[in-house]
Each structure stands twice: as structure tokens, then as C-alpha cells.
């Protein structure tokens, strides 16, 4: 009997499986949603893709797992490296995958400025609500009251709402989904890789750390998924976000979708102005 290969296999390096993640880790859901989107888009191989990540559990998603060029960079610097890659070879699809600590704490400045520039990158932030790799410290996304290794009496620092913050930049695309919204998450990947394939695209995936969040809470992955499903409320317009969050729920959805020219296009017209100016 022949078994059909799982759709994700063609995008993975078989030789490095199994993944390095904890059993039940939601990073697999993020990967699968992305791969499913790619498959549905008819992307056969990833030779025109470059994956860039920083340091953290989620930064291990692409490197070395994904069968593609990938750069596993310093903690926090993935967006900067990705910017260099994109500008030096604009033909490439550059995807950044990273953690909430990596992209928002130590690398927050790069994230903000890449969004300001509408840099032609897809940035996927796996929001697991903690620093997982370094054993569960406070992240800028950790909810209030949450106990972590560095907030043993409960977090008192209000968390940052990254997706909401990025709505107010030049980013072309901003979405947030939970791992419980597999289908919608996949749709967002599809949008960000085809329909809105230029400019800065940001997808936040709420994926609580299985070890330092879910297990701490005494829950199973299945229970957590169920809980997330109930907590997520899809908004149709950004004006609903605050209301949803006031009710203690997680607002998900596509918060922003525009087709403004990305940095590469703007730079090219700037460069042609430069050439004209120098001919005069």
C-alpha cells in the first residue's frame, strides 16, 4: 500500500526530520499553513524564496528545515538581513519567520522601519507569548498577570499589540490569526504571497508556547486550541479591534490590505531620477 506523502514534505529537508520542536509545539501548525498556501498557489519548489530568521524556537522553522535558501541570523536582526537580501536581489521572495522577542523586543526597531519603508518582505511573527528558547522569560507580548521565569509574581508590564501598532505604518498587509484558525491563516499566507506580493506584509500567529505557557497552565494542546477557538473573534474592520479586546478576547482577521508600491519599486523610480539628474 502506498501512502500519499504529506503535502509539506516537498518543502522540507527530509534528512533533518523530525523537527527540533517540543511535542505538540504549534510551530508545526504555522509551517503547515504556509506550506498548504504554497501548494495551493502551485509553488513547486522554493528556489526563488529566501527565508530569514533570527534566534529563537520559531527561528528554527526555516533553518535548516525548509528546503530553500535560508539565513539563520543573529537574535533580532532577521528583518535587517532580509532587507539587504531583497535590495541586492529584488527578484527573490524574502520571508522572515521569527518570534515575538526576536522581532519586537531586540529587533523591534528593524520591524518598525521595515514597515515604515513598506519593505518588500513577508514577516511572520510567531507570538508564543514568552521567550521560549531561553526557557520562558517575559516577552513584550506576555499577557498581564502571567508568571514567567522573570516575572515569578505575575507580569505587570502591559504587553504590546504588534499587529495593531503596524496598522498605523506604511505596511501593505497586516493580519493576525490564532493557530486555531488554520484555514484563515493559510488564506492569509496565500494573500501575502500572491495578491499582495509587494510591500511589507505582516502576519502575526498567536501560538502559545506549549512548554512555558500551555503546560504551565496545566492544559493539553487540544484544550488550548479549544480555548483559543473560543477566544478568537474575527473582526471585519479595525474599529472593532478595541471592542473585542476590551472583552478580553483576541481580535483576529486581516486588519489591513493595500497595494501601495513597495520599497523596491520606489527605489527604482528614485534611481531613475538619480540617473536623469546626473545626465543633466
Amino acid at each position: 500500500m502506498s501512502v500519499a506523502k504529506h503535502f509539506s514534505r516537498k518543502y522540507l529537508r527530509e534528512e533533518v526530520l523530525p523537527t527540533p520542536f517540543c511535542p505538540g509545539c504549534f510551530n508545526g501548525v504555522v509551517m503547515n499553513a504556509m506550506f498548504k498556501a504554497m501548494e495551493e498557489l502551485g509553488i513547486e519548489d522554493l528556489r526563488n524564496f529566501v527565508f530569514v530568521s533570527g534566534i529563537g524556537c520559531s527561528s528554527w522553522i526555516p533553518n535548516p528545515l525548509i528546503r530553500a535558501d535560508s539565513l539563520h541570523t543573529l537574535h533580532g536582526r532577521a528583518v535587517a538581513v532580509a532587507t539587504g537580501v531583497k535590495l541586492a536581489n529584488p527578484r527573490l521572495n524574502v520571508v522572515v519567520i521569527g518570534g515575538d522577542g526576536d522581532l519586537v523586543a531586540i529587533g523591534g526597531n528593524h520591524l518598525l522601519h521595515a514597515a515604515r519603508r513598506n519593505m518588500d518582505l513577508l514577516v511572520v511573527m510567531v507570538n508564543n507569548m514568552v521567550y521560549a528558547m531561553t526557557r520562558g522569560q517575559l516577552a513584550p507580548t506576555t499577557p498581564l498577570g502571567f508568571r514567567t521565569a522573570t516575572t515569578p509574581y505575575g507580569n505587570f508590564e502591559p504587553p504590546i499589540n504588534v499587529a495593531k501598532l503596524l496598522i498605523n505604518t506604511n505596511a501593505n498587509y497586516v493580519a493576525r490569526w490564532c493557530v486555531s484558525n488554520f484555514h484563515k491563516l493559510k488564506q492569509s499566507f496565500k494573500e501575502a504571497l500572491s495578491e499582495v506580493s509587494k510591500g511589507f506584509r505582516f502576519i502575526e500567529v498567536v501560538a502559545p508556547c506549549i512548554t512555558y505557557v500551555v503546560r504551565y497552565e496545566g492544559k493539553t494542546p487540544g484544550q488550548k486550541i479549544k480555548e483559543l477557538r473560543e477566544a478568537c473573534v474575527e473582526v471585519k474592520s479595525i474599529s472593532e479591534i478595541d471592542d473585542v479586546e476590551r472583552r478580553g478576547k483576541i481580535a483576529v482577521g486581516v486588519f489591513k490590505k493595500e497595494l501601495k508600491p513597495g520599497y523596491v519599486e520606489l527605489y527604482e523610480s528614485y534611481a531613475s531620477r538619480a540617473r536623469e539628474a546626473s545626465q543633466k
Binding site: 541570523t73 539587504g84 541586492a88
Partner: peptide
């Protein structure tokens, strides 16, 4: 880090 990325992309 941008320089590093660019170098890998061939610049």
C-alpha cells in the same frame, strides 16, 4: 546586517 544579507544575495 543589511550588508550581510546583500552580500549573500551576491552584492
Amino acid at each position: 546586517n543589511m550588508v550581510i544579507g546583500a552580500s549573500w544575495a551576491g552584492a
